[in-house]
């Protein structure tokens, strides 16, 4: 579902800043990025592209039902 997992995070916060939808936050205790609000992910991959260690995996499915016009 949407942004899926983070592995090998160094806690640089690039993804947190680069996510337009405020999906990711830094966990204060572990100092690592956590996916806090996956329902708001627009699957744009900016976080992944800004991550210096390529830690983020994103899947193509949205985690909540989507509304479309037709189809």
């Amino acid at each position: 579902m949407t942004i899926n997992s983070i592995n090998g995070c160094i806690g640089c916060e690039e993804c947190v800043k680069s996510c337009p939808c405020d999906v990711i936050r830094l966990d204060k205790e572990t100092g690592k990025a956590v996916i806090l609000y996956p329902a708001d992910c627009q699957i744009c991959h900016l976080c992944r592209m800004y991550c210096p260690v390529d830690a983020i995996e994103i899947r193509p499915e949205k985690s909540i039902p989507v509304v479309v016009s037709w189809g």
């Binding site: 160094i10 806690g11 640089c12 690039e14 100092g31 992944r48 592209m49 800004y50 991550c51 210096p52 260690v53 390529d54």
Partner: peptide, 25 residues
């Protein structure tokens, strides 16, 4: 691998990585 794909440039990534001093790791 950033040389071969879109995203942050390798050197920029490297600098960010080795200057993240908040991280114990």
């Amino acid at each position: 691998p950033r040389f071969f794909e879109a995203g942050i440039k390798p050197w920029d990534a490297f600098v960010t990585m080795v200057t993240t001093f908040d991280s114990a790791g």
